[in-house]
Design a protein around this nucleic acid. Sequence first.
DNA 1: GTCGGGTACTTTTTT
DNA 2: AGTACCCGAC
Length: 727
Amino acid sequence: MPSITLADLNPEQREAVLAHDGPILILAGAGSGKTRVLTYRIAHLLADRGAPPEGTLAVTFTNKAAAEMRERVSALVGDRKHLPWVGTFHAFCARVLRREAHLLGYTPSFSILDEADALAIVRQVLNEANLPDPPPAEVLRSRIEQAKNEGTLPEEMAEAATSTRERTIAELYRLYQQRLREMNSMDFGDLILLVYRLFETDRSVLSRWQQRAQHLLVDEYQDTNHAQYLLVRALSAATSNLFVVGDEDQSIYRWRGADIRNILDFERDYPNALILKLEQNYRSTKTILAAAGAVIQNNRERKPKQLWTENATGEPVTYYTARHERDEAEYIAREIVRLLEQGMRPADIVIFYRVNAQSRVLEEALMRHRLPYYIVGGLRFYDQREIKDLVAYLRVIANPADGLSLARAIGAPPRGIGAKTLEVIAELSAREQISMFEALGRLESESRVALRIAKQASNLYSWLRELMGRVSAMSVRAILDQIIARSGFENYLASMPDAKVRLTNLSELLAAADAFDAEHAEGGLGEFLEQVALVNDADQVDAGGGRITLMTLHTSKGLEYPVVFITGMEEGLCPHLRPQDNDHEIEEERRLVYVGMTRARRLLYLTNALSRELYGNRQDTIPSRFLSEIEHNLMRRIAPEYISSSFVRPPPREPYVDYSDSQLPEAEQGTEADFNIGAKVYHPTFGLGVVKRREGRGDGAKAWIAFERGGLKLLMLKFANLRPIAD
DNA sequence: GTCGGGTACTTTTTT
DNA sequence: AGTACCCGAC
């Protein structure tokens, strides 16, 4: 008798939840309740089938999805402690590698490089190789990434090479990999590839981790790449209790190596697999579903599937044509004002675009109408310069071999140590077989380096060295405080032109460290750095605190909103086309639009502009082919009269509506009086909160604030970027 | 040698 | 529009 109640599942969902052991593929259409099926299945395995939590593993696409799933499973089984591990592929692999690093010639405190770091290493490798006709760094980087996504090592790439060019690329890949190893660093692709290779070569390690994956569940299976596929296969080989959920119509990461065949060929790879379809949609109106279906059915690379819903017919899809992008943004802003007047809340509304560059105009329009919004993605918090600088110090402390971070830390604030001296450091490190960090401390014996500079270097070396000895007993916040104090980082930021923003970012980083420390023991630096490296854009969704959301179509996966605007429905932009693109790329763009459309619950707007300026030049546009794939009776067409005339006017020079800058709202920085005890405030990261206690005054004024998300925090009013909220 | 300012150049999506 | 790189000033 199951203790998990399955009453609120439909028959197909229930079948999926209760299905026997063995490989199972759930083809879950958009909005068909796949997250529900996954969580119920996990709960059922734990509560009614005796699956051990420590032997159960669930892989999701984002950290946020993982957190949600953990939450929901724990609510179902009524146990907060004995839960399975849930996280992303990359987080799982990072965890494996921390444990097994020594087997691969790394230490457990290896650094995880982001894309910019990886590209910097590629540049270094290219420079040192000094080839007569080198491939562009970006090309080489993407070839390496591609190889890793395919599960290919440098030697294998070299063997498969059929041309000199290919052999060169393979050799450069080898050198790149060697350099990463020297720096005790890995890129994203390594996390997956190295784990898979380790499993392949070391059976005892494999079986140890197979113990952890007696039940393996994978969400968003359509977006796994070949390396991830191999990894999943290896992990689940002992029991074959593999449960994957996916929808080939929502595969939108082909360009990143996602292999749609992983889902299309599941039956072939697992001949005894049970395959179930979830086709009832609980999210959207009949009209929205029909419109989305009309678009996606033009794809050839898919299994036929018919979504249906018992939901109401709803409103027609609005198709608005604007003269230009300002007009498009203005229409959206006014429409939102109208929706809000009808009782819709800002948090119900989302605006999607194909490329981040489109967000600017939309922002401006929302600002003009004083509409609260926030942007998911774009420049990530941890990608901002001052944040990367400080994180570089942390990375050097955790991993002295990380020469890239060392170079970064040395330059921020500037210490008179530049490119030439760094060369000497690198050379010394190679000659003496010591880390870059150790070399930093030995410059005084180098006659090539001016004494003044060598003194600077050894000063930096000694206080970092001293700090390294203590970090295992320190909180991340304490380490950061030390770094900031010793390096003079605050003065450095204060001297910059946009000092205010940067200091605010600094205090956000400190707050993030506090939040981390609250949940971890001292010595958690490595874990903190891992978190920093592996956060993704989608993780910030919901941090908006009741505002309108803006994001790319890619980031929208897995989310839903009552009202959805999809902007820029134009050939070249959506679908985003490049000259060499073929049918495969068009199909991916179509899936992307399909994903966007199926996020909508009640209202869907599609907009285009007849003329658009992007990246600094203006062009006339052609409406997206996807618009013409939707039956006209599903749409309400809004196009200004002049558009129906036979010619299209050139874009106006003047702004559509002239709002002077003076009308832009001031960034509302409350005065101290706004933060009295009991006052409600809003913080960009922690959301809504209430002031509980005050300390200090003037520039040093601080407040204890209880946030909805993130709990109680002590923040400096000067930096915290708090907005007072009226009751 | 280092650093800041100017110029020239290139634009998808991101774990 | 934003960034990478180069060059001239300290």
